[in-house]
């Protein structure tokens, strides 16, 4: 089945991180999509893409978790994932995970072919374009590594920001470098992870930005909770939150 990027119906695979820890990001994603004329379907039975177990050395556990998601997207609609690394899991790793199971593999490949990272979808398929009018703001952009490498998130993130009049992108030092999250890496090697997060935040702060955005809630949790511990007021937000804010300010329909 061919994906239809122009479809006005999409599925949202919101990810477990957004569902439990960052629901506002999910709500903003839905809102932006709807403002762009899309009907969003949220399959209630969704849980998690399986990435945590998969990357930690428990692929069988991950397979069982992923398998529970395979039947949730029966219609040929695009599947929007507002988190680059989870999107990469669906797009690149699910087919590998079910390599030895023909039926599930076919399902996984079908899903992979119509999985889009949120920013990619709104920029390249919905033609996001806002009128000017909103107050100027300076932001830094952190793209998650798997998002950048598996979902082309850096160009998409930059392209999205470029569509938001008044938003100035400040490029930080070592922009492409990892924030130190890495799932269970942050718990197994907390000191190294902390050093990476600290460097990332120092670089972002050095730009003098008003805030930073990312399309990956794992990175955002890592960075924001580090900032909270540092008692630093700077925060990162999901890129959908910024887009929604600009839409509201700019008064677009």
């Amino acid at each position: 089945m061919k994906p239809n990027p122009a479809a006005t119906q999409v599925y949202l695979f919101a990810t477990c991180v957004i569902d439990l820890f960052s629901p506002q990001s999910g709500l903003d994603v839905v809102d932006v999509l709807e403002r762009l004329g899309v009907t969003v379907h949220f399959p209630e039975s969704q849980t998690c893409c399986g990435q945590p177990g998969y990357t930690t050395g428990f692929p069988e556990e991950a397979r069982r978790v992923a398998a529970a998601q395979l039947d949730l997207f029966p219609e040929p609609w695009p599947i929007i994932v507002p988190s680059g690394s989870c999107g990469g899991m669906l797009k690149h790793h699910w087919p590998k995970l079910f390599a030895d199971d023909a039926a599930r593999r076919a399902q996984a490949e079908n899903i992979a072919a119509r999985t889009y990272e949120f920013t990619d979808y709104v920029v390249n398929h919905l033609g996001l374009e806002l009128p000017s009018g909103a107050a100027p703001i300076k932001v830094a952009l952190h793209t998650s590594c798997s998002a950048r490498r598996e979902m082309n998130a850096l160009p998409n993130g930059r392209a999205a920001l470029a569509k938001l009049p008044g938003v100035e992108l400040l490029v930080h030092d070592h922009e492409s470098e990892c924030c130190g999250f890495g799932g269970t890496f942050s718990v197994k090697h907390p000191e190294i992870s902390a050093a990476m997060a600290a460097d990332k935040l120092d670089a972002i702060k050095a730009t003098g930005c008003d805030g930073f955005v990312s399309a990956d809630c794992g990175c955002l949790l890592n960075l924001n909770l580090t900032l909270e511990k540092r008692q630093d007021a700077l925060r990162g937000r999901h890129i959908a939150t910024l887009i929604r804010e600009r839409m509201a300010q700019g008064g677009t329909a």
């Binding site: 439990l20 999910g26 197994k188 907390p190």
Partner: peptide, 30 residues
């Protein structure tokens, strides 16, 4: 464990996304 060495604790949000979406539907939003 290692998480809070350099970060604030990971705490569930006051409401899950699914709850917020349900609320939104009830309110007729979207």
């Amino acid at each position: 464990a290692g998480w809070t060495q350099s970060r604030a604790p990971l705490k569930p949000a006051p409401q899950s996304l699914r709850a917020m979406l349900a609320q939104r539907r009830r309110d007729g939003g979207g």
